[in-house]
């Protein structure tokens, strides 16, 4: 029987230092193709850590990460997979501040080996999806916080990844900008792209298919919304 395309963590625990408590404690989670998942929980509950592990930026202290049912990959393979499968929208704004919006939106495409001219076209299309086509040539440090976050979302959408991992993508936005950003991230994501959003905001969680509650590193609720 063919395995379904999914990203899975099994019994994952993680601590950052030996003398520190576990940030995650025996978490198991399966992200199916095309699903929108909200990771909710208070600060320090392990949302960002779980995202890092899902996105292969962090190797868990214990447990396994499975991609399409396959066991963990070695470092070199992880870098390649990160480029091919994942896109990130980070907490706050992680951008190249003095570069243009379109340069930032094209970054993931270039890292996947796309030619420059082609990547610019694709990045422009992604900026159009998030409503920033007119600001493509503006430097990032001249844009508002909401606009910058939408550029980050455009960067994530442009690569048409299998997984978009978003860490508090609306944490610094007002309600209006949050609505625009979530619409772009969840509502306009490419078909088949799963999105995992770490958030405090029930409004954001309300746009997702699945909500996972994390408390002290343990998933306590895994509910599918109607």
């Amino acid at each position: 029987m063919p395995l379904s395309r999914c990203l899975e963590v099994r019994d994952v625990s993680h601590r950052y230092r030996h003398d520190q408590p576990l940030v995650l404690n025996g978490v198991s989670l399966r992200i199916e193709e095309g699903v929108a998942v909200a990771l909710m929980g208070p600060s320090g509950s392990g949302k960002t850590t779980l995202l890092s592990i899902l996105g292969m930026l962090t190797i868990p202290t214990a447990g396994t990460v499975l991609l399409d049912g396959q066991p963990p990959l070695r470092a070199r393979g992880r870098t390649r997979l990160r480029a091919e499968l994942f896109s990130w929208v980070f907490q706050g704004v992680n951008v190249l501040p003095r570069r243009s919006a379109v340069d930032n939106a094209a970054l993931g495409l270039l890292a996947r080996g796309m030619r420059y001219s082609q990547s610019m076209g694709t990045a422009l299309a992604a900026l159009e999806v998030v409503g920033l086509h007119g600001l493509a040539d503006r430097r990032i440090d001249t844009l508002s916080g909401g606009e910058v976050q939408r550029v980050c979302i455009a960067r994530a959408l442009a690569t048409r990844p299998r997984y978009i991992l978003a860490d508090e993508p609306t944490g610094q936005l007002d309600r209006a900008n949050t609505a625009v950003a979530i619409d772009a991230l969840v509502g306009r994501r490419p078909r088949g792209t799963a999105v995992v959003i770490a958030t405090h905001d029930p409004f954001v969680a309300g746009h997702c298919d699945v909500v996972v509650q994390l408390v002290d590193g343990t998933p306590t609720v895994d509910s599918r919304l109607p």
């Binding site: 870098t79 390649r80 091919e84 896109s87 990130w88 970054l107 993931g108």
Partner: peptide
């Protein structure tokens, strides 16, 4: 640092 991390996160190898 953040710029370096961004390049790595989007899939740029070391």
């Amino acid at each position: 640092k953040a710029e370096i991390a961004l390049y790595l996160a989007v899939g740029t190898s070391r």
